[in-house]
Design a protein around this nucleic acid. Sequence first.
DNA 1: CTAATTGATAACCCACAGTTATTGAATGAT
DNA 2: ATCATTCAATAACTGTGGGTTATCAATTAG
Lengths: 292, 292
Amino acid sequence: MGYQLELRHFTYFLAVAEELHFRKAADRLFISQPGLSRQIKQMEEIIGADLFVRNNRSVSLTAAGHYLKKELAFIFNHIDFTIKHTRLINEGSNGEIRVGFLGSAIQTVIPEILINVNSTYPNIKFSLEEMSNYDQVEAIEKDQLDLGFVRLSRVPKGIQMKVIHTDTFSLVLPDNHLLTKDTFTSIKQVENEHFILFSSNYSSLYYDKIVSICEDKGFTPKVSHKSVHAQTIYKLVESGLGVAIVPTSLQHGFNLGVKFLEIPKIPQRAVLSVIWKEDNRNPALHRIMQFL
Amino acid sequence: MGYQLELRHFTYFLAVAEELHFRKAADRLFISQPGLSRQIKQMEEIIGADLFVRNNRSVSLTAAGHYLKKELAFIFNHIDFTIKHTRLINEGSNGEIRVGFLGSAIQTVIPEILINVNSTYPNIKFSLEEMSNYDQVEAIEKDQLDLGFVRLSRVPKGIQMKVIHTDTFSLVLPDNHLLTKDTFTSIKQVENEHFILFSSNYSSLYYDKIVSICEDKGFTPKVSHKSVHAQTIYKLVESGLGVAIVPTSLQHGFNLGVKFLEIPKIPQRAVLSVIWKEDNRNPALHRIMQFL
DNA sequence: CTAATTGATAACCCACAGTTATTGAATGAT
DNA sequence: ATCATTCAATAACTGTGGGTTATCAATTAG
């Protein structure tokens, strides 16, 4: 009494259940027959059920034994798979990477990376969450996130950053606006319009950069609305509430009454970077680093 | 080298994974801390994966450890059930079905099912436990439960759901309230009363539905109390602390100073569903499926 | 009858799970 | 700085119980 069931018991039971012969089962397990007999007996005592009928000349399974045999086969397979899978996760071949991103990055860069990673490591899964620059940095420091897609110039100590995409800026105008691709030569032509920008605490670098585009040309933009979603910004532009400046690549995927005119002759670029924690312990992350 | 994994390792691992503290885990297991440390280390060697990160000051799970923890919880539940079931078969019973349910389902539907099953399969036993929607889903995924009675609109992948009962809603009033069956025409008549509802994290769909009944009629209910038990809610109503809205069938089985008025002309229904795991291996469950 | 084949029992042995005592590293308090 | 505290790892030990060999008891075959 007071013993515990162990996997050993299950292994032994399965051998006997398959051989229906203690001696042969013992041989298969490379142990002696009395040892096996005792373990099986102990197992029956622990469970509190007869598993075999010993006819003193032949061995057969009881109904309970039959059921147990079937279930244990399942359990062993499940355990085997689990152990194997655990090892794989440890090696980074399987696993999950938690990704944060700015809405303005989801159109171009991220999909490409995901597709590439998926073709080489189909077992690595992603969980995506849209977050502000600042929230991403915080989440990465807290190990709530493995990877962030941000627009930042600097990043706290302990966090790595790598530029992965630079983009020109485009002016967003309502479809019926006077300016066209041909007549648009400088951003100064819209200096009297109201500007709709991404909220500065969503991405302050981004905000400042757009303001600097205007200031370089000698005027300060009148910012009337701030928003977080490109969709919202375009809707406001379409409604005639103002104009906007966004990264050129952000024109894909929308169907609204606005037109995009690339701003010529400016040095500013929308820079998208990946960030991650130096001492991140997620093995899957290291696997996919090459794709960044 | 050459060791074997045993259930002991799993038990120890789970204790450490839950406590994240070797000493506390060792205390819980009634063994010494060095013994535990060694077993865990051995386990990591056998599996060939790091399961914990020991910072010499704190213990945390690796990605592989997280995965293993989740899977082992399932495996243990499955083994426990299998052993129990083996014993039941040995005793000549046909099995046991573990049922979870919302308190609001115990009055009407479940008793009928139990009576039906019992008359055909007198040897199938039930263990009933009252649980929230969310807990039931979790328990079913972990194989802690075979069947759940919930009020949900969606359910995770791998879980089956079937509607078994739809019910109208009734207003619960203290006996001495002015409104009667004849004068009650719209829920708007009680818009100034305080409402006592089931807690939203007990059953959020249910909560939202009741709020929507009011909002459809042009007002937002003032929710003053939230509770988990119908009994409690009725008691509060009886005490004059407010009114409540519950599924009509939930009026049976109580003897309190409250009256139930079915709410006329609303589309909302209280929908009760059964849920179970697609790949549930309990043979008794498959036998009783026809009764659902 | 004897010989062969089966699982159960008895008595012994040693591997290793679990013990106590200690170290070493990191943190917090004064 | 210095000391006390808190944690896991290491070292050296001990004794339970898994496994051993030897034997028995029961059945079947020739």
